[in-house]
Simulated scan of single mutants.
Amino acid sequence: MARMPRFLLTHRQTTYHVISRTALDGYPLGDQEKSLLLGIIQNLSAVYFCQVLGFCLMGNHFHLLVTMLPENEITDQEVQASFQQRYGDEYTLMPGQIPFYRQKWTSLSEYVKEIKQTFTRVYNKKRGRKGTFWAERFKSLIVEKGETLINCLAYIDLNPIRANLVDKPEDYRWSSLGYRFRSHRKDTFLSWNLGLEEYNVDSSKERLRLYREFVYARGGIDTGKGKVLEGVPLPECVERFIQRTRFFTEAGIIGSREFVRQGFEHFRDLIQPKRERRPHKIQGLEQTYSLKRLT
């Protein structure tokens, strides 16, 4: 049976939650491997036209929350700058090549494929092995900016807590929250473009404080600052949130009812449904709906 084509919106900025698992037994991504993978993601994110919002590198899989920019927003000069970033002075970009690279470097599929292929090539060379490292093709789902996006980001940053790897999410150095806390970098690797007004403040320290408190509330982590979130006792909130996290990995589209409905209409010809599909309400996440992934 042919695989269902991936849900991709190439005509506008679109945020995707990407998940990819290894094909090897156990937990082949140790500290060195995670450092290698993170470096590859950082390097390629400086070439591709994207904004990385979050990530988490675990022992046998990784999460990436990334916004891809559409071709029509990218100028010839920006393509030339990315080419220089990627190849340096070794090669010259010809004018006729610009459309090819503009399309390639705005493609989610090309972006993730190059991350995985680059990692596999270096990993295999270091270990004198051949063969694949990654399992089946990566999963991706479209995430609406705003409340849905920050919930998805919190889900990603809480992975080390669920796996009992650390007591506090910022202590895990291979996640976006840990990266922000440990580095205090002023680089442009991670974006705060979440679509929420409260994160538009100038102070990066204030943005980080707001987000950390949100993650602690969602994860049920004791901050010593009260036990109530939106009128619901914290343990119940946490349980409901954890129970619904599968929607952040298994849905095809997730967001408000209208966002999901519009997504369904956009992909109607691709899906070719036998019946009308309605947005599915996600209990425990206010005003959040999903379109179930089809196989």
Rank of each mutant, 00 (worst) to 15 (best):
Gly88His: 05
Gly59Ile: 12
Leu93Cys: 07
Glu73Thr: 12
Gln262Thr: 08
Ala217Asp: 13
Ile40Gln: 06
His184Lys: 15
Leu270Cys: 09
Asp31Leu: 06
Gly231Glu: 02
Asp31Asn: 13
Leu229Thr: 10
Ala46Val: 00
Leu141Val: 07
Asp187Ile: 00
Met94Pro: 00
Leu29Ile: 04
Leu108Gln: 05
Pro233Trp: 00
Glu236Arg: 13
Ser290Arg: 01
Gly220Cys: 07
Val47Leu: 03
Ile19Cys: 09
Leu210Glu: 00
Arg244Gly: 14
Met94Val: 00
Glu90Trp: 14
Asn151Gly: 03
Gly219Met: 09
Arg257Thr: 00
Pro273Ile: 01
Arg277Ser: 09
Gln97Leu: 07
Ile254Ser: 02
Ala135Thr: 02
Asp31Gln: 10
Thr22Lys: 01
Gly178Thr: 09
Ser109Cys: 06
Leu141Arg: 04
Glu78Asp: 13
Phe83His: 08
Arg137Glu: 05
Ile253Tyr: 04
Arg137Thr: 03
Gln103Glu: 14
Arg129Glu: 08
Gly39Glu: 12
Arg257Cys: 11
Gln85Trp: 09
Gly146Ser: 07
Gln84Val: 07
Ser290Leu: 10
Gly59Asp: 06
Leu190Arg: 09
Ala251Leu: 07
Thr106Asn: 05
Leu36Asn: 10
Gln13Pro: 14
Tyr155Asp: 08
Ile40Thr: 08
Glu147Ser: 13
Phe100Lys: 11
Val215Glu: 05
His17Leu: 13
Tyr211Gly: 01
Val112His: 05
Leu53Arg: 14
Ala217Thr: 05
Asp187Ala: 03
Tyr289Asp: 02
Ala163Leu: 11
Leu37His: 10
Ala23Asp: 15
Leu177Thr: 03
Ser183Arg: 15
His184Gly: 11
Leu291Gln: 09
Lys168Ala: 08
Arg127Asn: 11
Gln243Tyr: 09
Gly219Trp: 11
Gln117Trp: 00
Lys292Tyr: 00
Arg3His: 15
Asn193Lys: 10
Ile282Val: 15
Leu165Asp: 05
Ala23Tyr: 04
Lys292Asn: 12
Thr132Met: 01
Arg207Gly: 03
Tyr155Phe: 15
Trp174Lys: 08
Arg240Leu: 11
Lys225Tyr: 09
Val166Ile: 12
Lys225Ala: 13
Gln287Ser: 14
Glu236Ala: 10
Arg209Asn: 06
Met1Asp: 14
Met1Tyr: 09
Gly59Cys: 07
Arg21Ala: 08
Arg173Pro: 03
Asp171Asn: 15
Pro169Glu: 10
Glu170Tyr: 15
Glu197His: 13
Glu78Phe: 01
Leu141Tyr: 10
Gly128Cys: 03
Arg240Glu: 10
Cys56Asn: 09
Arg268Phe: 13
Glu144Trp: 07
Ile19Arg: 09
Glu213Leu: 02
His266Cys: 03
Ala46Ser: 14
Leu36Val: 00
